[in-house]
Amino acid sequence: MMRSRRQLLAAAVAAAATCALMVGTANAADRVAVFDSANASRIAASQRGKPFVLVVWSLDCVYCKRNFDALGKLRAKHPGLRVVTLATDSAEALPQVQQVLDRVKLTNHAWVFGHEPQERLRYAVDPDWMGEMPRTYFYRADGQRQGVSGVISEGDWARHLRWAGIAG
């Protein structure tokens, strides 16, 4: 009986830590939350019906840096631009992901892939996405979205932001 109580207590502590990681961390400044397939709908819901940009990237994606550079310039012009980031690296790479996001000043609403299979996590984000990066989604306030693969030119950023209802 004593062993069962210990196991139950350990499971409760682990569940509380997981919930804090998944829910609390996603909204806390300067932290990266662990993304699982159930979080896909939470990302859009976290923006409370406001237009935003979801940037999917990876530490080993050289082209993702260009999108971060463009986002830095856009945020300088439009400080209210809402950006959510999702790194496809494993949760073990969280310190390196955090370091990159600190450098590009995109630490709010940041996520990193969790321990589920990559294919399942990608499917949760977008069933039509095959894993190419960078991948950027432009969300309207009503939840409609457009996905764009590859580096986005300055003119295309403006066009997609206008489509989403964000000043471009």
Rank of each mutant, 00 (worst) to 15 (best):
V23C: 05
P95L: 00
G49W: 01
G80S: 08
T25A: 13
P79W: 03
T18A: 15
A93T: 00
N39H: 05
V13S: 06
V53H: 03
A17E: 15
A29Y: 03
R66K: 14
T88Q: 09
V55T: 08
L94Y: 00
V62R: 11
V84K: 04
C19Q: 10
V34G: 13
V84M: 07
R48D: 08
V56I: 14
L54T: 09
R82E: 09
S37R: 14
N67L: 06
R42V: 02
L74S: 03
K50I: 00
A17V: 11
G24V: 12
F68C: 05
P79A: 01
R48A: 13
A40M: 01
I43N: 02
M22S: 04
Q96K: 12
R42N: 14
R75K: 15
D36A: 10
N27M: 11
L71T: 12
A91I: 01
V83L: 09
L21T: 12
A45L: 10
D89Q: 07
G24K: 03
Q99D: 13
D69C: 04
T18Y: 10
V55P: 00
V34M: 15
V56Q: 11
Q98E: 06
V83G: 07
A29G: 14
A70G: 07
A40R: 01
V34P: 00
K77Y: 00
G80A: 06
K65S: 12
A16D: 06
D36Q: 10
A28T: 15
V13H: 06
A45N: 09
F52V: 01
A91S: 14
A91V: 04
K73R: 15
D30Q: 13
V84Q: 03
D69Q: 15
G80L: 03
T85P: 10
R31S: 15
P51G: 01
N67E: 15
Q99M: 10
H78I: 11
G24L: 14
L54A: 08
L54D: 07
Q99I: 00
K65P: 01
S46R: 13
K73T: 08
S58Q: 13
C64R: 11
V56H: 04
S41D: 06
P51S: 02
L71D: 09
L86H: 12
G72D: 08
T88C: 13
W57P: 09
G49T: 02
R42H: 11
A40G: 04
A70M: 13
T88K: 00
A16G: 08
L71F: 14
